[in-house]
Design a binder for these strands. Structure first.
Lengths: 223, 223
DNA sequence: ACTAAAATGATAGTAACACTATTATATTCG
DNA sequence: CGAATATAATAGTGTTACTATCATTTTAGT
């Protein structure tokens, strides 16, 4: 990512913007490191404080709760994807090519860290695969939704839907298709590592990305 | 369900089989009621004890942890689906019809309680949609997997895969397809209730079931 | 350079949670 | 009828997810 660009995360996902201070950045990078290492359940503000050489209370000056940190990271991720989606579809006339690039972006695994300033993209990608659904699979999802927590995610879904409707304006299920591809990719990446019986591995091929490209285009091009 | 039939849940998902006592059955039905009502995060053994008029310690004689209760319920659900899958494919010669029935079974919403003895099927279905992925989206998933916790789920996936391979023996991604349909259905049911921007609703139609039937058959019948 | 304000550190405290342990009282089974 | 087993009642423990308070450091404006 160009050093001139920074990701703008929705305001209501933090108390104090962590990008505005060194401590804030350490909280974010430390959280990414620890959530990836321990899993979200075992992650605590106390452990974070030890990791970054600060105190438990300091974390709470930036984020209301550990739940809100995950919301922030997810929001960060989708703002980043939004930006990458723009880059990979810009100046391309063919709707099919744009959709192809978009699905590849959403389904590919991030293996090389592009060093997004203080954010480790590889670890963040793993967190999204494993933990991001936990931010909404809760009873209080409606409150979080009305706070706008999921806007960046919905925006990416809508952008891809728009390309789909260019290709097939009569298609009835564009949102189901896109969110199925996204959530499906996350699950499959997790299955590939931990529950291989629930997925398919083909040597020398990114089976997950190939699969979703295949179903999307077969679904849209067949009458 | 016929009263002669009972669901056999894998042995290692409990300490003492809850089906063998009245208290055990109350623990299971009470858990289903409370997890559905409060969400898995807010569910506790203390609240369960109050609900069923027992004590906290009693719950722990049947299940190691609240995590294990969710594993038990999920195991119960997949054993039940396994049985229903058998019923809806039995004596049907056409592979396509069997697959059609199987996908319908996996994608339809349970709206009417068929009163499965002490298990409320409607509530259990909602719990599966919302909470079941939490049993494996964890760091200790490998331990749980080696304990056989996910066998009933894997078995159902494999049964549907077998039908797919009858129809298209060269198809490379049967497991991805089936687990995408299952996990996708759960997410979409949740989205339909709480995050409608991520799904599509069509009046008078079960859009979710239609969508997955469509992608499965388009994927398999197109060359 | 000085002062007020803001940010951070250090420390303590709390209610709830996820269990474990112990002892007493029922219930069941040979 | 007695022994084993299941359950109830109660208490206790370590951890978690915060909140509160006050001292100290850093920063910003004049």
């Amino acid at each position: 990512m160009s050093s001139q660009i920074s990701i703008n995360v929705a305001e209501n996902t933090y108390i104090k913007n962590p990008e505005t201070s060194e401590l804030g950045k350490k909280i974010v990078s430390g959280s990414i490191h620890l959530i990836d290492k321990l899993g979200f359940e075992k992650f605590t503000f106390k452990k974070l404080a030890v990791q970054i050489g600060s105190t438990e209370a300091s974390g709470y000056r930036y984020f209301e709760s550990k739940h809100q940190i995950l919301v922030y990271l997810t929001s960060w991720y989708w703002s980043w994807m939004d930006y990458q989606l723009l880059l990979c579809t810009l100046n391309i006339i063919s709707s099919e090519t744009r959709l192809n690039n978009a699905i590849k972006l959403l389904t590919k695994e991030i293996k090389v860290n592009t060093e997004l300033s203080y954010v480790d993209g590889v670890k963040l990608d793993r967190i999204i695969n494993t933990d991001s659904s936990k931010i909404y699979l809760k009873k209080n999802v409606d409150i979080d939704n009305s706070s706008g927590y999921f806007i960046p995610y919905k925006k990416v879904v809508q952008l891809v839907c728009d390309i789909i409707l260019e290709i097939k304006p009569t298609y009835k299920y564009p949102h189901i298709l896109v969110s199925t591809v996204i959530e499906g990719t996350h699950h499959q990446r997790f299955f590939a590592k931990h529950l291989p019986r629930l997925t398919d591995k083909i040597a020398g091929e990114d089976a997950i990305s190939e699969f979703y490209l295949d179903i999307v285009f077969k679904t849209l091009t067949q009458k």
